[in-house]
Amino acid sequence: MSYPFECGNRTVWDAGYHSGQLFASLARGAAEFLDVPAGLTPTREGGCEVDPAALLTFTERLYGHYASTNSEVMHGLAHGLLITSLVLVERTGGTVPLRPEHEASLGWAKNVFARSMA
């Protein structure tokens, strides 16, 4: 069973059911914390419709928070959500510029995630 993330008529991530639900739940919680919408609307079919502009804003805000702290706990908590969001932003035609100090590590992780996000 899958949990698709759709952008218009295109599937940008056909997540496994549990992976998709967990990502959507984490994004909703982080969006509340960041006081912005996550850009993910649950569908009747059991997935999410992606609003590219809102997802971009959410991911920029999440990355801004990530980049503004040296807290290893905050980095650890945000890492998987941020990487998954960066992949989805790219798949919906957007981009979040990374600071030079994050380009190598986050870029590498983004590539690893993208390969496994069918």
Results as ranks from 00 to 15, higher is better:
M1F: 10
M1D: 11
S2M: 05
S2C: 05
S2Y: 05
Y3R: 09
G8Y: 00
G8M: 01
G8F: 03
N9C: 04
N9D: 09
R10Q: 04
T11Y: 09
V12N: 04
W13L: 05
A15D: 10
A15S: 14
G16Q: 01
G16S: 01
Y17H: 08
Y17M: 06
Y17Q: 08
H18T: 12
S19L: 07
G20L: 06
G20C: 06
G20M: 07
Q21H: 09
F23H: 08
F23M: 06
S25A: 06
S25L: 08
A30F: 14
A30S: 14
F33H: 12
L34N: 09
P37W: 03
L40S: 00
L40I: 00
P42S: 09
T43V: 02
T43P: 02
R44Y: 12
E45F: 04
G47Y: 03
G47T: 03
C48L: 00
D51I: 03
A53W: 01
A54W: 03
L56P: 01
E60C: 09
R61Y: 06
R61P: 04
L62V: 11
L62A: 15
Y63K: 03
G64C: 12
A67Y: 02
S68R: 04
T69D: 02
S71F: 00
V73Y: 00
V73H: 00
M74F: 15
M74Q: 14
H75P: 00
H75Y: 02
H75V: 01
G76K: 05
L77V: 14
L77I: 14
A78D: 08
H79Q: 12
T84R: 04
T84Y: 01
T84G: 03
S85Y: 08
V87M: 06
R91H: 08
T92H: 14
P97I: 10
P100H: 14
P100Q: 15
E101N: 04
E101W: 02
H102S: 07
A104P: 05
A104Q: 12
S105C: 13
L106A: 12
L106G: 10
L106W: 13
A109W: 11
A109Y: 10
A109G: 07
K110N: 02
K110A: 07
N111Q: 15
A114P: 10
M117T: 09
A118M: 03
